[in-house]
């Protein structure tokens, strides 16, 4: 976007005035004046699965931030500065919002902090914490805690995320989905279960047995085995996936 010298001076004067006065009316004028740049940038990100209206909103928000932060004394074209800011906002939107495609970064980051906080709270409270307690401790909304938990423990459906095997081999879950015969023999299954349990490491087997055969809580197991509750949770999730995959392989 090239402007004439006159336009540039005019625009600069406006930005200087806005910085001086913080006049919201002036700010809105500046945003209005650059709306076409915002929609131009939003269009670049269209057709990636997000509604264009949403992208436009995000771009306007980026433009608002650009106008508020732009420093005319830095001898930079506003359009250059705004492009960077708006694109940053659009990229962040894709990172945070398109979580049906991949796990968003924020819950992932939160998940990493979750374990420590849950342990700390469990010790302090003498019981497993509730979600609002965890949310306060992490300084985030309760929904964010729940989403962070999702990152950690996708049990069965996680195997959907695994890529198809080489040479077009179906994955375990695909075989399962495609199976026509759902009949199974319980006695045979029990034998299978014992076989796969025997394959686990001693610690994994202990945890699975304590949890599912002796009905102990994760906290009780954590104490018994001498590891954290979150660690028990992760081990259980992983072990269950392993067990299921083994069962499916043997069963196929």
């Amino acid at each position: 976007m090239s402007l004439s010298a006159e336009e540039r001076a005019h625009s600069r004067a406006k930005f200087e005035e806005y910085r001086r006065t913080g006049d919201r009316k002036l700010r809105n004028e500046l945003i209005e004046a650059h709306k076409s740049l915002a929609s131009h940038l939003a269009r670049r990100y269209a057709n990636r699965g997000e509604p264009f209206d949403d992208l436009l909103q995000v771009a306007y928000l980026g433009m608002l931030k650009a106008v508020e932060r732009f420093d005319p004394d830095r001898n930079l074209e506003f359009s250059t500065y705004a492009t960077v800011t708006v694109e940053g906002e659009l990229k962040r939107h894709f990172r945070d919002k398109t979580w049906s495609v991949r796990v968003p970064r924020r819950p992932q980051e939160l998940h990493l902090r979750l374990g420590g906080v849950v342990n700390e709270l469990s010790q302090r409270l003498g019981r497993a914490p509730r979600i609002p307690e965890v949310a306060v401790e992490l300084g985030v909304a309760e929904e964010e805690v729940l989403e962070a938990m999702e990152v950690g423990g996708a049990y069965r459906s996680s195997s959907l995320d695994t890529r198809p095997g080489e040479n077009g081999e179906p994955t375990a879950i695909e075989r399962r989905l495609g199976a026509e015969d759902r009949g199974f023999d319980i006695a045979e299954h029990r034998v299978l279960l014992e076989t796969v349990l025997a394959d686990l490491s001693e610690r994994e087997r202990t945890i699975v047995e304590l949890r599912f055969f002796y009905d102990k809580t994760q906290t009780e197991i954590a104490e018994e085995v001498g590891i954290s509750q979150m660690h028990v949770s992760r081990l259980l999730a992983r072990t269950l996936i392993q067990l299921r995959e083994r069962l499916e392989t043997l069963d196929a």
Binding site: R127, P129, R130, I131, V134, E142, L146, E150, Q218, T219
Partner: peptide
């Protein structure tokens, strides 16, 4: 489900 359970005051282990 976990959102509803949290509203009921379930703790993190019950939700898991």
């Amino acid at each position: 489900g976990s959102g509803v359970a949290s509203r009921l005051g379930f703790d993190i282990e019950e939700i898991e």
